[in-house]
Nucleic acid binder design. Structure first.
Lengths: 136, 136
DNA sequence: TTAAACTGTAATAAAACTAGTTACATTATA
DNA sequence: TATAATGTAACTAGTTTTATTACAGTTTAA
């Protein structure tokens, strides 16, 4: 993050929730999302690693949810795709001679952590099932 | 966002708060942040446009806070630098034939708005003065 | 036992975004 | 009038993200 991965991951998971335990192919998922199947399979690697889904190889293979959608929160999904802080990453090294520059990164990190925590709390208010049920 | 602009903007504003009404040059700001003065001046354009600071041209010119730091919240600063949603932007166009694809962007937008609102509320708990006073 | 339909993954390319640089006109001061 | 600033534009470089291609491995079913 920040990019389209959260949207892709959530889209995949909603489709799997709707599939009700049937294996879904990356080609089908890609068709709904309108991206390349290889991109879907890349996101599936991550979702699998985080325990959200399970895949079966070979003909008639595909992917299913590994847990009931009500046990997966949007905050957990967010965490699985985010790689950098929401507010930005400190790759800049401010002037260590300056009393402000010297300390700003640690203060920023604290701020970012607090903020991110609030964001995840907000997302945790909704489960994948809650979100999925918005689609009639 | 998401990039270093929030950090740069906040760093600038802390330095201005510490300057206590004295004009500060972009060269000085750049020296503390450790970036190019032109980058600072670019961020100052935005900060000025949002009413946070005022600049004076010419020799001995520089920038000052336009308002007391206690009247500026971190949420306001965040809003001034963010250009896209925290969770990602919908530039992808999912399959309109698919009942999920057809509706996902509007559900995502709702979710993003709710989440962003919570994030800004969190940031609004702190004023620029609060943040600046963390630097001894 | 073999063709077909999948996943898994790597390598590469293209596109988009972010950050950095240079240059110089303009403005104000001493 | 020299100097030290800002204000901007144009351009370049770097990084990240997304997309594409390719193919080996796996499973199924005829």
């Amino acid at each position: 993050m920040n990019n389209g991965r959260f949207a892709t991951a959530l889209h995949i998971l909603v489709l799997l929730e709707k599939a009700n335990g049937e294996l879904v192919s990356s080609g089908y998922l890609a068709g709904s999302i309108n991206i390349n199947p290889a991109m879907v399979r890349k996101e599936l690697i991550s979702l699998r690693k985080h325990g959200f889904v399970e895949s079966k190889e070979g003909k008639n293979g595909g992917t299913i949810l590994a847990h009931p959608a009500k046990n997966i929160t949007l905050g957990q999904i967010y965490k699985s795709v985010k790689q950098v802080s929401i507010l930005g990453q400190q790759k800049n090294i401010p002037n260590p001679q300056c009393p402000i520059g010297k300390n700003i990164n640690s203060h920023l990190n604290n701020l970012y952590n607090e903020t991110e925590h609030a964001l995840i709390e907000q997302l945790n208010k909704q489960s994948l099932a809650d979100f999925s049920h918005k689609f009639v």
